[in-house]
Amino acid sequence: MRSSIGVLLAVLISPLAQAELLDEVNDRGELRIAVQADTAPYAFKDGEHLTGFDVELGQALASELDLRPAFIEVPAEQVMAGVQSGLYDVALDEQPVPTQAELDTSQPYSTGERAIPFQKDNPAFKSAVNNALQRLKEAGQLAELEARWLKPEATAAQ
């Protein structure tokens, strides 16, 4: 009896028993996205409305994953710790993601080698995010977002 309880506990606390982030996100039906609301043109308030490159990217990414986007405004110093702890699923930030052993990232999706950080050891989530980014890239949506938000002189010349 004692050995079966020990085996059960070992299974329950093993990394393999942890839920995959993709399953958790799909069960919730929403993607919790941390943004800083004072980093125009990436994310900023237009009146009471949150807008910018990161906001539109988050909406497109959530849509590709068949989820609702849930934007959470977070101070810069709390973003990565919140992603690491699972408070937020991903972070969209104007700065390239710092190399941190505690986080994993998507493939780069933008000029400046920007990538999306999320909790480590979630291969299905990483694959889903990378596939969604690839579809957005192939459809031209990433280029459209960059032209609209990050290269205003390019769109003014058109």
Rank of each mutant, 00 (worst) to 15 (best):
I5S: 12
V7E: 15
V7S: 15
L12S: 13
P15I: 12
L16F: 12
A17H: 13
A17P: 07
E20D: 14
E20I: 02
L21Y: 05
L22P: 09
L22G: 13
D23N: 15
E24R: 13
V25A: 06
N26V: 12
D27Y: 10
R32E: 08
R32A: 14
I33D: 03
A37L: 03
T39S: 13
A40T: 04
P41Q: 03
Y42D: 00
A43K: 05
A43M: 03
K45C: 03
G47T: 02
T51V: 09
G52N: 00
F53P: 01
D54Y: 01
V55D: 01
V55T: 03
G58R: 00
Q59D: 07
L61T: 10
L61N: 01
A62V: 06
A62N: 01
S63L: 10
L67D: 01
R68A: 11
P69K: 05
A70N: 11
A70G: 07
F71S: 04
I72R: 12
E73T: 15
E73S: 15
E77L: 09
Q78G: 12
Q78T: 14
Q78L: 14
V79S: 01
V79W: 04
M80S: 13
A81M: 11
G82C: 09
V83Q: 04
S85I: 15
S85N: 14
S85F: 14
D89G: 14
V90A: 02
V90H: 02
A91H: 01
D93M: 13
V97N: 04
P98Y: 14
Q100N: 14
A101S: 12
A101Y: 11
E102F: 05
L103R: 01
D104V: 07
D104A: 14
D104L: 07
D104K: 08
T105V: 13
Q107S: 12
S110H: 01
T111R: 14
E113W: 09
I116R: 04
P117M: 05
F118E: 05
Q119D: 02
D121E: 06
D121I: 04
N122T: 03
F125I: 04
K126E: 12
S127C: 08
A128T: 03
L133N: 00
Q134P: 00
R135Y: 01
L136M: 08
E138D: 10
E138V: 08
A139D: 08
G140C: 06
G140V: 07
G140N: 00
Q141T: 07
Q141F: 03
Q141R: 10
Q141H: 06
L142R: 00
A143S: 10
A147V: 07
W149H: 05
W149E: 00
L150S: 10
L150F: 10
K151I: 06
E153L: 12
A154H: 13
A154L: 15
A154F: 15
T155S: 10
